[in-house]
Amino acid sequence: MKLITHNMLTSKCIKGVLTGYPLAINATDVKVTEVDYNPDFLSRVIPKLDWEVLWTAANSIGHGEGLPKAVEPKFEENEEFLKKAHKVLLEVEVEEGYLTCPESGRQFPISKGIPNMLLTEAEVQ
């Protein structure tokens, strides 16, 4: 699970949960894989994300170093920032661990890099 994906995951489908966001990450295995750097893509996608959630997530798995807490204006011209964002959004992956719903405490396992967001019928609204 990449952190850009985590930015969009919730547990809101659980009965009684209102927003279920953001999910806390507990990682037992994190890997970093190098992928294509595309500054144009980053410039377009970063404004669509919840940066604070990303910042907290990156810190919680030990990859928050040097990452600013907020996106600065004209961030798209700051190559150092974009490189850092690139790494945190696309290269850092949680391989094993779990996500926790902030409201209900329900845990979602992450195994072989894939978060399992399935719920049982009894859990849904």
């Binding site: 994906t5 995951l9 893509f41 894939i114 849904v124």
Partner: peptide, 18 residues
């Protein structure tokens, strides 16, 4: 090997996405 691709296990009827 695709930079901006990822996968998630979910159910379409109760998709835990924002």
């Amino acid at each position: 090997s695709i930079a901006g691709a990822d996968c998630v296990r979910l159910d379409l009827l109760n998709a835990n996405l924002v």
